[in-house]
Design a protein around this nucleic acid. Structure first.
Length: 275
DNA sequence: CTGCGGGCCTGTCAGC
DNA sequence: TGCTGACAGGCCCGCA
């Protein structure tokens, strides 16, 4: 499911719903979701108060009182649910936290790709996966120079580089297709072959698209809902992703779907030509 | 170091 | 209808 705008939406919902709660029990029904040994995971978190939920790119950072962070990555399908009764969780809910007010926080993940791990808060940004993340859109670290310099050093196609999280973080398959359409760049263009005009357009397109998607509460294609069960609305504004067979909203040419780097890729063959 | 393919899992959908 | 294979908002690992 989730790219930066969806994870940010979940983060805001969790803060509204469960910030300030203390974990009183944990039921791990599918142990591989949890990176720590299960006994350690429980021992560290039970009794801890959730101070706030932060985020780095697509990672949720649950900050607990005793300088602990639970890093949670939703991968393809992970989602959090807050419920009053245990019976409200189905077979795809793999970790359940009992909260001090009697509610439950469940982690549901049909494909079981997601992972959660407790680390000292001082280590949260140097943990594997997070340590190598590039700057993310809408932050001071994300500048035109970091984007242009980063892309200059990559020979791979632009789509693969934008999905890689090292030059810029937070984009996934949906938003990469969207920003490349917006900036009129062919997804197979070598990253170090973009013109200055394309770099300028891409830099802005990334910020603008992520901002609009957050404002819309993310994109719901198949299954994404936020922690309150709400669907996103950005799918109504998509102009490339899943638009194959439809006319390009800029030029009317039929949007095509191809494979780039093994990922389904949607683009307009007329306004996104190779340089 | 980079690039590529496979793995992790389950569900859905198109095509035969 | 039933089966089979491809595909799905992501990331990691091992190998060449």
């Amino acid at each position: 499911m989730p790219e930066l705008p969806e994870v940010e939406t979940v983060r805001r919902e969790l803060n509204q719903m469960i910030k300030g709660q203390t974990i009183t029990a944990i039921d791990v029904r599918y142990p591989k979701i949890v990176v720590n040994p299960i006994a350690q995971f429980k021992q560290l978190l039970i009794g801890q108060e959730l101070v706030d939920v932060g985020r780095r790119a697509k990672y949720l950072l649950f900050h607990f009182g005793d300088d602990l962070t639970m890093i949670s990555h939703l991968r393809m399908e992970g989602k959090y649910q807050v419920r009053d009764n245990l019976q409200d969780f189905d077979k795809h809910v793999h970790v359940i936290f009992t909260l001090s007010d009697g509610r439950y926080l469940g982690y549901r993940d049909v494909r079981k790709f997601g992972r959660m791990e407790v680390v000292p808060r001082t280590a949260e940004l140097t943990t594997k996966g997070i340590a190598k993340l590039g700057p993310e859109p809408l932050t001071p670290a994300y500048t035109y120079e970091t984007l242009a310099d980063g892309l200059q050093r990559k020979k791979k196609n632009i789509k693969t580089v934008l999905l890689d999280q090292q030059v810029v973080s937070g984009l996934g398959n949906i938003y990469v297709d969207e920003v490349l359409w917006q900036a009129q760049i062919n997804p197979e263009e070598p990253a170090n072959n973009l013109t200055t005009a394309q770099l300028t357009a891409l830099y802005s397109a990334i910020n603008d698209t992520i901002q609009a998607a957050i404002a819309a509460g993310g994109t719901t294609i198949r299954s994404y809902v936020d922690a309150a069960g709400n669907q996103g609305q950005f799918q109504l504004q998509l102009r490339a992703y899943k638009q194959d067979g439809k006319p390009c909203q800029r030029c009317g040419t039929t949007i095509e779907k191809i494979k780039v780097g093994g990922r389904g890729t949607h683009f307009c063959p007329h306004c996104q030509k190779l340089n």
